[in-house]
């Protein structure tokens, strides 16, 4: 069967507290699994909690956020498992994982690259700190790495400052930095959102190639279903803090089982000729504020199929076959016909 998971998020909830408002549960009871060599895409609209989930894994959340329950079990091969949710923020064991075994890349490379150091120095530094390499050896590996992420003239570009590079090259440099210590997990938070389509295609290619080379697990956060279809093996759809549906990318796209996933897919224009053109059927209304989230299924207020249990009872995960499951009352109410 499949390889053992390297990261298992179980029943994780993240809450934000603020001095003059009630606490907000930004992520509630999320279960996710990352497997080496596979990509899990976390997809959803803004404010759905996908970035919070990713940041929780590295404990990069603001001070007013707290993982209230659940566990983040990190099990690298041949090592004892660690529950990241139980580690103290900024403790040594956490820092040993962060950047070293689990790395992250962001939407805006400038936010993670220091503007006053050259690209090469920054990557060298990672290797020197985490792996104790000598500066000379580190630079050799840096150049090889920059070359691998497709930066032309790697040796010269290593001496460039981030602002001297174009957006695409900067993104590549950030990826190189994330890969400096050959992490087992790469978390990519909307890495292509700020890029042009052609650059985006190149970066997606690169990530796929690097995953094949390094065999790392990837958690890919995006709002773009097109990108999901391009890069993901597994997909988890989030809405207002809930993972409403997850499964293999082929299953979820072929048989979206949660009304939200379906609505999302009907919201993107199909690439079709005028004759086959169907009018978009958008989801009505807007995403409610987290504090107005219905007690039951979060999607109740916008769901065309909502019925009695939806506003009050939170639907359980229902398996619709092949490890593909969704949280929707409809699935348990009306049994899905499974053709033989």
């Amino acid at each position: 069967m499949a390889e053992n998971p390297i990261l298992t998020i179980k029943d994780m909830s993240v809450s934000f507290s603020s001095p003059d408002e009630a606490d907000i549960e930004a992520v509630r009871q999320v279960d996710l699994t990352l497997t080496p060599g596979k990509t899990l895409a976390l997809v959803g609209e803004s404010g759905c909690g996908k970035s919070v989930t990713a940041r929780a894994v590295l404990r990069l959340l603001d001070n007013n956020a707290e993982i209230r329950r659940g566990s983040i079990r990190f099990e690298p091969e041949g090592q004892a498992p660690t529950d990241i949710a139980r580690l103290k923020p900024d403790s040594l064991p956490l820092r040993a994982i962060r950047g070293n075994q689990i790395a992250m890349i962001f939407q805006e490379p400038m936010s993670s690259l220091s503007p006053v150091h050259t690209i090469g120095d920054q990557i060298d530094e990672m290797m020197i700190i985490h792996e104790g390499l000598k500066p000379k050896a580190a630079r050799e590996r840096t150049v090889a790495l920059l070359d691998q992420v497709g930066i032309p003239g790697a040796r010269e570009r290593a001496d460039a400052y981030p602002f001297q590079l174009s957006g695409g090259l900067r993104q590549r440099a950030m990826i190189a930095m994330a890969l400096a210590c050959t992490p087992q997990i790469l978390i990519a938070d909307e890495p292509t959102t700020a890029l042009d389509v052609t650059t985006q295609a190149q970066i997606l290619d690169l990530l796929r190639q690097l995953q094949a080379d390094f065999g790392m697990a990837m958690l890919f956060i995006t709002h773009d279903l097109g990108v999901v279809a391009e890069i993901a093996d597994e997909v988890a759809v989030m809405y207002l803090g809930d993972v409403v549906e997850q499964g293999s990318v082929y299953d979820v796209f072929a048989r979206p089982s949660h009304p939200y996933t379906q609505a999302l897919m009907n919201s993107i224009p199909k690439l079709a000729r005028k004759a086959d053109r169907v009018r978009l059927s958008p989801i009505k209304g807007t995403v409610p504020a987290p504090k107005d989230r219905p007690e039951g299924c979060a999607f109740t207020s916008r769901c065309p199929y909502a019925f009695e249990p939806c506003p009050t009872i939170r639907p359980a995960q229902t398996d619709v076959g092949n490890g593909h499951h969704a949280r929707c009352h409809l699935l348990t109410r009306v049994p899905v016909e499974e053709p033989a």
Partner: peptide, 24 residues
């Protein structure tokens, strides 16, 4: 090139490696 780079929301139409999309 633009059409080639356009991601399509259908994993069955995944385009494979796009070496064609190159340069900046």
């Amino acid at each position: 090139l633009l059409l080639e780079a356009l991601p399509i929301a259908d994993p069955l139409r995944r385009k494979g490696r796009k070496k064609e999309v190159r340069g900046e």
